[in-house]
Simulated scan of single mutants.
Amino acid sequence: MTSIVETIAQSIKRADRTLFNENYVKQAEAVVEGLRRAGYEVVPLRPPEPLVEYAVENIPFGRLRPSDLIRTLYTTMVSNCRRFTG
């Protein structure tokens, strides 16, 4: 799987029609960092299996309202995604 930084870098490179080569990875890293500062995280559409296993082991058991369970699951998976995708 291609990292989000590489994906953005390739997109910037394809969009740039100048004669000079730029550091697209540096630009892509800046975009991803800006997204994170704004409260976003870029994650794959399908979670990697190790992340699913991590979430299963770290989601609290017991009686949770469905909305609380979904919020906890979402937060756990998104906030830990980088640990399992690079």
Rank of each mutant, 00 (worst) to 15 (best):
M1I: 07
V5M: 05
T7G: 12
T7Q: 14
I8K: 09
A9G: 08
S11K: 07
K13Y: 11
K13M: 14
R14M: 13
D16M: 04
R17D: 14
R17F: 15
R17V: 15
E22A: 11
N23P: 04
V25E: 06
V25S: 06
A28S: 03
A28Y: 04
E29L: 01
E29N: 10
A30G: 03
V31P: 00
E33T: 10
E33D: 09
E33A: 13
G34P: 06
L35F: 04
L35Q: 01
R36C: 05
R37C: 01
Y40H: 01
E41V: 14
V42I: 12
V43I: 13
V43D: 06
V43L: 06
P44D: 12
P47Y: 02
P47N: 05
P47M: 10
P47W: 02
P48L: 02
E49G: 00
P50T: 08
P50F: 10
P50A: 07
P50W: 08
L51E: 00
L51V: 08
V52W: 02
V52H: 03
Y54V: 00
A55H: 07
A55P: 06
E57L: 01
E57Q: 00
N58E: 04
P60M: 02
R63T: 12
L64D: 06
R65H: 06
R65I: 00
R65A: 12
P66I: 10
P66L: 06
D68R: 00
L69Q: 10
I70Q: 11
I70Y: 12
R71Q: 14
T72Q: 13
L73T: 15
Y74I: 11
Y74D: 15
T75M: 12
T75W: 08
V78N: 04
V78Q: 02
N80Y: 07
C81F: 04
C81M: 10
C81V: 09
T85R: 01
